[in-house]
Nucleic acid binder design. Structure first.
Lengths: 190, 190
DNA sequence: AAATGCATGTAACGCGTTACATGATTTT
DNA sequence: AAAATCATGTAACGCGTTACATGCATTT
């Protein structure tokens, strides 16, 4: 079983909203699905090229007034068919690699303070994320309420909030645990 | 900034528990840190070879009675130094790619039933995971209580529980949302 | 003796990242 | 005119996966 290039489906899905250039795709990813997906230019442009070669997207030179030349890509009927076929399939499970937890697994070998600092940093990031999510919900989502995609986007956001809050809770709990360890090293304990 | 091969640190960390063969390493990963880390043989063996070449691990032929030849690797002083140096550094942030959420983002383009099925599947897996975690806590952890690493491993497990419960909650919430959509498609709604 | 399983590895492949190259446009 | 920014790409690299190869030991 060969590995599946998911990038191509991400691009097809985005192009099914509207035609876009590679640059716009990247920007849209950042601002709309950045919480759970990423693509780099070094991936986007070659994949677009390949999709075009395979007839899954159309490509149109378009030069807007006072702008450098750009290529606008749009999904083709063939591409849409492939996208729908992929959409109907079960998502493949992500394989996680959590470096923070890996380090914690070895933490007793090193300095507690280092890991405490790491978890505190982690904790801070979760708090920031939650603020962002709440901003999205209250401001960014306003004009989208009538969109057929809205309930799904709401579900995505909710995912982010649930997970991030869980991480935050864990981090706070773990910080106090690490603080106890730092005060009372096991090698010296009763 | 070149990409960092984390596999090498994972292996060094595990070998710092005790000397092991590649096969044993793989097994240990599966049973101890499998919830947040993975390595394949095709990665483990070459990396061990490279680590040996660089003098970060020692290698010893060891043939146990009635067993095929095997190589046992152990961490060297140099390797331990590198491990500790890595341990003290801040973990690099993971870049997520959540295919389930990506599909949800495009879900309104396709069939609600497909996505409902996906989320239900996801929900089921979370329930199973929670059971596993609870088994680990009640049974697997028993003999480890006195280990200096124990509080950290407890924290790891707690991470798994927090996250998995959050995912489960989200899944249940999302299932009812999707069921509502399935009954009342937006294109026909009031 | 054959089949299965254990254990160790190599080879091929391709995804994805980082760094670099290019040119046009806007700003200073 | 120079610097910064926008936009589009290519090239090199290497991590990690999958598939394959090998050989010994145990089971049937």
């Amino acid at each position: 079983m060969r590995r599946e290039n998911t990038t191509k489906y991400a691009l097809l899905g985005l192009l099914n909203f509207r035609p876009m250039t590679g640059y716009e795709i990247r920007q849209l990813i950042e601002e709309s699905i950045g919480h759970f997906w990423h693509e780099s230019y070094g991936q986007i442009y070659p994949v677009l090229k390949k999709l075009h070669f395979r007839g899954l997207v159309t490509r149109k030179k378009c030069r807007k007034a006072g702008k450098p030349e750009r290529h606008e890509y749009g999904i083709s009927a063939k591409g849409r068919k492939l996208l729908f076929e992929w959409l109907s399939r079960e998502p493949k499970q992500e394989r996680v690699r959590n470096e923070l937890l890996l380090k914690l697994h070895f933490a007793f070998m090193g300095d507690v303070e280092d890991h405490l600092r790491n978890v505190m940093q982690y904790c801070k990031r979760q708090k920031e994320k939650i603020k962002t999510f709440e901003w999205i919900r209250s401001d960014y989502f306003k004009p989208l309420q009538k969109d057929p995609g809205f309930p799904y986007w709401e579900a995505e956001l909710s995912y982010g909030l649930h997970i991030t809050k869980a991480r935050l809770e864990w981090a706070e709990e773990t910080i106090s645990k690490l603080k106890r360890i730092a005060r009372k090293p096991v090698t010296k304990g009763a």
